[in-house]
């Protein structure tokens, strides 16, 4: 079995380049659609549980359904998770968010923080 056959290697490279272009495309579109957000929206297990204005600094403890928690901090117009009960701490490692469409996700606690724009913009988005 000759795995370094030229044609296959060429196809591998084409595949690699294609997916990188695809990733860049998705990223570009999402960057262009981003706007400064107004609210941090907390979603636990698929239901919206709370909404906090980004203009007021705050520190909130979010309880999840499995008994875990995430500490959400709102500071200088940005929302960030600084502490969590989950073992992997992926949510803590994620950067602070402030633009619409950005999200911080904690899979073990089924908690997602998203950013919302003005109410108006939201209606546009739905329609």
């Amino acid at each position: 079995m000759d795995m370094f056959k030229d044609k296959k290697t060429r196809n591998d490279i084409i595949l690699g380049i294609a997916v990188i272009i695809l990733a860049a495309g998705i990223w570009l579109v999402s960057e262009l659609l981003k706007k400064d957000g107004e609210f941090a929206v907390v979603t636990v297990n698929g239901t919206e549980t709370a909404k906090y204005s980004l203009s007021e600094d705050a520190e909130i403890r979010l309880e999840s359904e499995n008994g875990g928690y995430n500490i959400l901090v709102i500071k200088n117009g940005k929302a960030d998770i600084i502490e969590a009960s989950c073992p992997d701490h992926v949510c803590v490692d994620q950067r602070a968010i402030s633009k619409t469409g950005e999200a911080i996700t904690c899979l073990p606690n089924k908690t997602v923080i998203t950013i919302d724009g003005e109410e108006e913009a939201e209606i546009d988005f739905v329609s």
Binding site: G46, G101, E102, T105, V112
Partner: peptide
Amino acid sequence: LGTEQIAL
């Protein structure tokens, strides 16, 4: 989780 933003 019902949040499409994760796809970003």
